[in-house]
Design a binder for these strands. Structure first.
Lengths: 210, 210
DNA sequence: GATTAAACGGAGGAAATTCCTCCGCATGGC
DNA sequence: GCCATGCGGAGGAATTTCCTCCGTTTAATC
């Protein structure tokens, strides 16, 4: 069953609005707010996503697709693995992309992760990230005691940045944070990390949902 | 006017419950939840904090006092500035201490920062942090292009960690994140950060409130 | 450009959440 | 032992959030 063009457009607007609101405010925003942000009637939201769960799955998949697109672009266009990773991380922090999950019913969370589309896109994401990490480590420019999962965690931590940074600083902060973070990842004698490197499958690298 | 001992105790329980809930769930939790978490009746909460704003100010000050205590202990007990900073950062990340502010009415936010007690404790906090940063830089072990404000931002970013980390990893994650972060701060040829170092007074190093 | 199935918006009542007062009982301080 | 201060929490008010429904609009097709 194929959506009419306007329906398709509104669907995307809703998913993006949902993602944006979750990032900005944390928690699950009221559905009315999502509709308003999307510039769409509340009825439209309910027509497209009769069940709350469907909306959440949609937002997860949508977010993951954005992350994968950024990773793919970085991988394709940068000359080496470290540059790709670095560009990817910077972009994620800048756009506040990354894992959304936080305060969800764990049971629902599991159902979201089991969704075929989410699971599929998530796989692509993990693969790309793993390739970058392995490449950068093989090139000797990245510390050996981290795994793709660590990068995922690092990025996800930046998604919910405090929103009250004074305006004149807001532009600079993400870049500085990303820079510090990347320097921490470089292969240089530093303090060994506790525990074992976190692999991609251990955890939720990106896009789990509310 | 001095509080009776039980009233005093309950007041502290409420502030701590509020802090904990904000950290765990983000946003402003229902007052009923705060009271319950504190193991106290809702009436007690309203008696002690008739205005919402007073509660927020109280939580801010309470949180800041914890942060200052951690900083002070680190400064007093560690042999050098870098060790102190390092211990302080690790402890903040571990306990998820740091700036709470995020989605507050900016106007209220300003009123909170203007509160004498908040302002006072915040000053102590900035001083201690500045001393650590300057000391570590003077010792040549910390990169020169960061300021106390950068540390504040770094810490605050870790306050709202995703809550859905698999249990077997949850213990390791904060330590690894803090380790990466600290290695990023070390004085070693890395990538220069964009923009200028953020000073303590530029921003909100810790303890703004919901 | 006429037809029509699909989609739209948003008013408004139901349901759920959150707020906050009030008062009979408990207890710390003297 | 006295009593001012503090306590708990039931329950009604206020607010927020949910979600259905239907008259109107629009994309697709011929």
């Amino acid at each position: 069953m194929v959506l009419r063009a306007d329906a398709r457009r509104n669907r995307d607007l809703l998913l993006e609005a949902g993602r944006a609101l979750i990032v900005e405010r944390g928690g699950m925003p009221p559905l009315e707010d999502i509709a308003e942000r999307a510039g769409v009637g509340i009825g439209t939201l309910y027509r497209r996503f009769p069940e709350r769960e469907q909306l959440m799955i949609g937002i997860s998949a949508h977010t993951l697709r954005q992350v994968v697109a950024a990773a793919q672009a970085a991988w394709d266009e940068e000359p080496d693995a470290w540059s790709a990773l670095s560009r990817f991380v910077r972009r994620c922090v800048e756009l506040r992309m990354g894992v959304l999950s936080s305060t969800v019913d764990p049971e629902l969370h599991t159902r979201i992760r089991r969704d075929p589309e989410v699971s599929e896109v998530r796989g692509q994401m993990v693969d790309l990230l793993a390739r970058m990490v392995e490449g950068a480590q093989a090139d000797g420019v990245m510390r050996e005691d981290v795994g793709p999962g660590d990068i995922g965690m690092l990025i996800s931590v930046h998604v919910h940045q405090a929103a009250d940074i004074p305006a004149e600083l807001a532009g600079a902060v993400p870049g500085r944070l990303a820079g510090l973070m990347l320097d921490g990842l470089r292969a240089r004698p530093g303090t060994p990390l506790p525990g074992a490197a976190i692999s991609g499958t251990d955890t939720e690298p990106a896009g789990g949902a509310h």
